[in-house]
Write a protein that binds this DNA or RNA. Structure first.
Lengths: 233, 233
DNA sequence: TAGTGGTCTAGACCACATG
DNA sequence: ATGTGGTCTAGACCACTAG
């Protein structure tokens, strides 16, 4: 029960973590407030705040004004998911990235897509289908709709030469959105493009991207069999 | 080009975001250093630091001592993935959670699992197979191995009454690990338990959990057809 | 070696939520 | 009403690294 001076926020993170892991501070328990911890550790409250804020970000602690700081009870498994552009994903596997535009038109999307892009009935959008390859082997099939309301420039872009994935990242910075991950059987056409049997279980990623609240693009990516998304807790 | 005083870090985040979105600060560009921005905004450097650190966390900026702060070139799509315990996932859908232990034994795992758990050849581990249901319908099939080296108490726990998912979260706090997400066809037994046809495309989640660097549990979760993992960018 | 971000301090005021 | 975390300040020193 000595009180070694802890004057770096990382040291405090470690000490708090240790106290939780050792059962000293049980799940659900209230821990001392910032001022008391600062006094105990011999540092300023700012430093304690930095450490506890970090642990709250990680999901280890729950903090509320007036109520104090508690050890989270049933913490979720929290991971940060970084999805690089497709080219980087391929290159990171040490493979050569290839890109082929399979289809391009400017037409009215199906109702589900129109709703996502918040388009009125019959309104057109840019439709692109493309295949990314890794060392010549199919990697992912991309079916994308781009709202020409949100990004009129897209109609002029040469998507045969520059893939939409990267074009959008560079031309529509700072977008937000939603991602859905699921499993789906390969359809007939998809199977042919991806070089697998129809019905094969494929990893599917749906993404709706917004910029300043306005829907920009809706894309479905079907990955070739064997794809696995890996992340660290 | 007025210089309105920005004295809250969130306001600075917004202003920097605006400058990037407007193209004022292009991707890859070097932005002014903290001291200059503090002078411009009429606030202390600490406040600027807080804002820029936040944007760096989000993946918008790249910061390096001496080199300065740059707008990231091809930022990854970055999302935070929170995976609650299975019961919470079911309840969040407004359904009643059910849990059934299908199988339990203490035996030597297959080589792939033994390697993950860093067990020596022939060493035993606790093996549990269980089904979680939502309103009585199959939700996810869990196939789990627990290292009894890391968690000897697990041999005494009553996993017919308390599901391993929650038991581990409460008894082995603060674990780290890796997650793999993929798509897989349902095998014969899996199809029967999950109530679908063999070969059906299923969403699969593999997880290896460590505590203090020591492997604790390896689990494969196969979700019933239609499962979709959703996350916000 | 010099410039940049990283961190810490001691103090202050504020916003919020609980009792 | 009051205790708690949230934030801001002005200043200082440190750690890293590009040139």
């Amino acid at each position: 029960m000595t009180a070694p001076r802890l004057q770096s926020w990382t040291a405090i993170v470690e000490e708090v973590t240790r106290r939780i892991a050792s059962g000293d501070w049980a799940p659900g328990a209230l821990i001392p407030n910032e001022a008391d911890l600062a006094a105990e550790f011999g540092c300023s409250r700012t430093t304690v705040n930095r450490a506890l804020r970090d642990l709250a970000d990680k999901g280890v602690l729950d903090r509320r004004r007036k109520a104090g700081t508690r050890v989270r009870d049933l913490p979720d498994s929290r991971a940060r998911l970084d999805i690089p552009i497709v080219r980087k994903q391929v290159e990171r596997r040490g493979a050569q990235h290839g890109y082929h535009l399979l289809h391009r038109d400017h037409s009215a999307p199906p109702p589900a897509i129109a709703a996502q892009l918040e388009l009125e009935a019959g309104q057109k959008a840019l439709h692109l289908t493309s295949l990314h390859t890794a060392d010549g082997q199919p990697f992912v099939l991309e079916d994308r709709w781009i709202s020409t309301l949100a990004v009129p420039d897209a109609l002029q872009a040469d998507f045969a030469a520059c893939n939409a994935n990267e074009w959008l990242v560079q031309n529509v910075p700072l977008s937000t959105g939603e991602i859905g991950l699921s499993a789906a059987p390969a359809g007939a056409e998809e199977a042919e493009v991806l070089g697998c049997a129809p019905g094969t279980a494929l990893f599917r990623q749906d993404r709706l991207t917004r910029n300043a609240g306005m829907p920009v693009t809706a894309v479905t990516m079907l990955f070739a069999p064997g794809y696995r998304m890996r992340l660290d807790l």
